[in-house]
């Protein structure tokens, strides 16, 4: 995976609560066996005008954008930071949801309230793919939502080294902290392959553990 240290970019805002993975990527697209090509499928049933969602095997061949869907605001084109509501990514374990967000060009996703911003499996999947998911205090999140909706050309910075989001507020730079488990942070900062690390660092421990497993297991 690509290392992630810090990223500066514009925001796109979708402040709905409980956005589930079926909404992020509908089940029919899960028939694909590839790991790429999911960008155009993000929010497929919301993003395109009725009938415009692409077929699973032709993701590039999509219809017009639906102007009513918040992420389709023309000012959001090229945004690389997605600001979302609480409990984002609830529902199924499909990693395709993370692939879709990431491959649509977002490098980081920001949600309100530590421990409640992202559903557990979505959060784990994101970190395994180098997509940064940051849960920040609700007051800061509200500032980002108004900033992203009111002045979408504003750039903010998400820094994994300092675990801070930096955003302009009243002529200075405000900051909002977030926290990523240390092992995941280390892996993301260095773009490491977790299987390789597990085998090299823990291969022996796994061998030893296996000798103690009960007969019935």
């Amino acid at each position: 995976m690509e290392p992630f240290r810090t990223h500066t970019g514009r925001m796109a805002v979708l402040d709905w609560s409980d956005v589930n993975t079926d909404l992020i990527i509908p089940a029919r697209y899960l028939k694909r066996i590839e790991r790429i090509g999911y960008g155009p499928l993000l929010f497929a049933d919301k993003r395109y005008v009725p009938g415009g969602a692409p077929l699973p095997d032709e993701p590039e061949n999509a219809g017009e954008y639906d102007p009513d869907f918040p992420l389709n605001r023309p000012e959001y084109r090229g945004a690389t930071i997605l600001v979302v509501g609480p409990n984002f990514g609830c529902g199924s374990s499909r990693e395709h949801a993370v692939w879709a967000v990431h491959q649509a060009g977002y490098k980081a996703v920001i949600a309100p309230v530590p421990d409640e911003g992202f559903a557990d499996i979505f959060e784990g999947n994101s970190l395994n793919n180098g997509l940064l998911v940051a849960e920040i205090a609700e007051s800061d999140w509200k500032n980002l939502v108004s900033l992203g909706q009111g002045s979408p050309s504003t750039e903010i910075t998400v820094n994994l080294e300092t675990q801070q989001v930096y955003y302009p507020a009243d002529g200075h730079m405000a900051q909002a902290s977030f926290s990523i488990p240390e092992s995941a942070r280390h892996q993301m900062l260095n773009g490491l392959d977790s299987i390789g690390i597990t085998i090299s660092d823990n291969g022996l421990a796994i061998d030893t553990f296996e000798k103690t497993r009960p007969a019935w297991s």
Partner: peptide
Amino acid sequence: IGTSEVEHVLAT
């Protein structure tokens, strides 16, 4: 678990 984790469990 997600697909990356499926791979991790298969391998380790």
